[in-house]
Design a protein around this nucleic acid. Structure first.
Length: 101
DNA sequence: GGGCTGACGCGCT
DNA sequence: AAGCGCGCCAGCC
C-alpha cells in the first residue's frame, strides 16, 4: 500500500475528539479505500506514543486490538465506558470522519 | 513467486 | 442472538 494511505489514516485518527471513537471501515471510506478496513488496523499495529489508536474499533463497537487492557484504561480516562471489549454507547459517541471532510 | 495472516465488514444461516 | 463464509489486499516469510 502506498504511504499516502497510511498518512491519511493517521491524519484522520488524530482528528478524533477525546471521548469519541470511530471505526476502521469508516476511516477506510473516508480516505477513499472502502475495502481496506483491514489495512487501517494493520497500519496501526505500531504507532507513535501520544497517538490515539485506542479511539479506533471495529464496526460493532468492539476493541479488537492486541492490548485491550491498555486501550480500555485510556478510554475510561477519557470518559468512554468499556465493558469487556465492548464500548458502551458506541452509537452515541461514534465520530464519523466523513462529516469532517 | 506463492501461501498465510490479519486491530475488518457484511450478508446469510 | 451468535456464528460462519467469503471478499478484500498489503506485508511477511
Amino acid at each position: 500500500m502506498n504511504s499516502l494511505f497510511k498518512q491519511q489514516v493517521f491524519e484522520i485518527i488524530r482528528l478524533i475528539p477525546e471521548g469519541r471513537v470511530t471505526t476502521y471501515g469508516a476511516i477506510a471510506k473516508a480516505v477513499g479505500y472502502p475495502k481496506h478496513a483491514r489495512h487501517v488496523g494493520n497500519a496501526l499495529r505500531s504507532y507513535d506514543e501520544d497517538f490515539p489508536a485506542h479511539r479506533v474499533c471495529n464496526s460493532s463497537g468492539r476493541i479488537t486490538a492486541s492490548c485491550l487492557a491498555g486501550f480500555t484504561e485510556k478510554l475510561n480516562r477519557e470518559g468512554v465506558a468499556v465493558r469487556g471489549d465492548k464500548i458502551q454507547n458506541f452509537k452515541v459517541i461514534f465520530w464519523n470522519p466523513m462529516e469532517e471532510l
